[in-house]
């Protein structure tokens, strides 16, 4: 069995690379840029022409957070919740990261890395919306080290991997969100996060 992860290290593929490093998996990295996704090698694995995608011994999957949940269930370990309620919460937070958090976050990210592609009105709308979204996460982290309790799980990895650009690229002011600030530092301080950021083609 071999796992191949498609997608540049500085892209949504970072989420999957982080999970692969947490799980200690052997894998091959095919570095495909977010600007060059309509190449046959990727379209075979993901007809949507988006990264990341994986080929796990013939199992082809796309959607970054779905890939992470699949890899975690397959390989188990401390990041996998040990009961169905916590597994439900992990899946809930993973969807929440995509439906509530990622939209406004990407607008603010683009405003930094590709300002010519985004309108001031979109930036303003995202800036207005994001605190409402973050308030939910801030509340969920009150009195807890991690989303499901005292241990780092797939729920934290999936949400923090989406949130990470707010910290690393946008330099978002988390002043009103001390729980998120501390939690993000804990999550992104993990050795597997740093190891994932250093992945090169293999």
């Amino acid at each position: 069995m071999t796992l191949t992860i498609y997608g540049a290290t500085l892209s949504r593929a970072a989420r999957v690379l982080w999970m692969a490093k947490e799980l200690g998996l052997d894998f091959r990295s095919v570095q495909i840029s977010p600007d060059d996704t309509h190449v046959p090698e990727l379209l075979r694995v993901n007809p949507n022409g988006r990264i990341p995608a994986i080929d796990d011994g013939g199992v082809l999957l796309f959607e970054s957070l779905a890939i992470n949940l699949y890899l975690l269930k397959k390989h188990g370990g401390p990041l996998l919740p040990d009961n169905i309620s916590d597994e439900g919460r992990m899946v809930q937070w993973s969807f929440w990261a995509m439906t509530e958090l990622e939209g406004p976050l990407v607008q603010l990210l683009l405003n930094v890395i590709r300002p010519e592609t985004i309108s001031p009105a979109d930036v303003a709308a995202a800036t207005e919306k994001l605190p409402h979204v973050l308030r939910v996460l801030e509340g969920a982290l009150t009195g807890r080290e991690y989303l499901l309790g005292s241990a780092f799980t797939g729920a934290d990895l999936n949400v923090a991997s989406v949130l990470s650009y707010l910290k690393t690229i946008v330099n978002y002011d988390f002043g009103s969100f001390p729980n998120i600030s501390a939690w993000t530092s804990r999550c992104l301080g993990r050795p597997a996060f740093s190891a994932a950021a250093a992945v090169t083609a293999s």
Partner: peptide, 8 residues
């Protein structure tokens, strides 16, 4: 995994 993928 595929069910998760299509749901996302």
């Amino acid at each position: 995994g595929r069910a998760l993928q299509w749901s996302f």
